[in-house]
């Protein structure tokens, strides 16, 4: 008995399949393979294979041209780097300001209206989440013109969905007995939120915000590619003139920033939780 046979014979056992089910499983895998081949053909229809075959030479050539990085270019990167951090931080703040009320509207235990405001808040959260921050930036640059403002708004709009979703889930998980106890003292709605709900979600709120800030540092580094300011703009400019040593330096700087922000966010989250 070969190893292959065993795994095939065992598959139905974990999935509790009947012989017919096993057949369906095989058909499913076969279908996946066929789908893959079909997609592959469609995708590569317009691929210039000459370029692909040439890739190893191109890679060697690129390596030669991109190394060593042009360190002296660093002095022109401090400003854009500062902008990048500002985009991430201000964008996160904007996201928080918009997401907090939405989260309270979306959470089933704090929403003031189940039929109108809750679906509206949930829709805002889903829409914000399904559009990548780069697409938000593309859109906002087209509307507002290039600059940091478009970047901040793009990061903010994307963060709303992320923070809003995690926060409203945290609100829905709060302990109902604490809420009941505060309501039983005769407290108003606002006071119940302030004394019973907010203290319970505060730790997750800080955690979520710092986590999103960390992600936003990564994202804001590339927003400049579409004109939304920060170090990505420098990347785009260097790419346009094929200044590969500068590109290498910029990528090193981005990686360094990402590592530092990840470290900061891990430390802060550790301190809170």
């Amino acid at each position: 008995m070969t190893v292959r046979d065993i795994s095939a014979a065992e598959a139905p056992i974990w999935h509790h399949r009947t012989p017919a089910g096993r057949l369906a499983l095989y058909a499913g895998w076969l279908g996946l393979v066929a789908l893959f081949v079909w997609c592959w053909n469609l995708m590569t229809e317009r691929t210039m294979w000459v370029f692909v075959y040439d890739a190893p030479t191109a890679a060697a050539d690129l390596m030669n041209r991109a190394w060593p990085p042009r360190w002296s270019y660093m002095e022109r990167l401090w400003g854009p780097l500062w902008d990048t951090i500002n985009i991430a931080t201000l964008g996160t703040l904007l996201g928080i300001v918009l997401a907090v009320p939405l989260a309270f509207l979306a959470a089933s235990n704090t929403t003031p209206s189940r039929l109108i405001l809750r679906p509206f808040a949930l829709f805002c959260i889903v829409a914000s989440r399904s559009i990548n921050s780069l697409i938000w930036a593309l859109l906002l640059v087209s509307i507002l013109g290039p600059g940091i403002l478009a970047g901040i708004l793009a990061i903010g709009f994307r963060s709303v969905g992320f923070i809003g979703k995690l926060l409203y889930e945290a609100i829905e998980e709060t302990d109902a007995s604490q809420v009941e106890a505060v309501a039983a003292t005769g407290a108003s709605q606002a006071q119940v939120l302030n004394y019973a709900v907010v203290p319970q979600v505060l730790p997750s709120f800080y955690g979520i915000s710092v986590f999103r800030w960390d992600i936003n540092i990564r994202e804001s580094a590339i927003l400049g590619l579409v004109g939304a300011g920060g170090i990505g703009a420098q990347l785009q400019a260097s790419l346009n003139v094929l200044a590969w040593p500068q590109v290498t330096l910029i990528i090193i700087v981005i990686l360094g920033t990402v590592v530092v922000s990840e470290w900061v966010s891990a430390r802060v989250r550790h301190a809170i939780i």
């Binding site: 691929t47 692909v52 890739a55 690129l62 590109v247």
Partner: peptide
């Protein structure tokens, strides 16, 4: 993606 485009040309590949 920027690097792969530089190496393999524009397009879905």
């Amino acid at each position: 993606a920027i690097f792969f485009v530089a190496l393999f040309g524009f397009g879905a590949f």
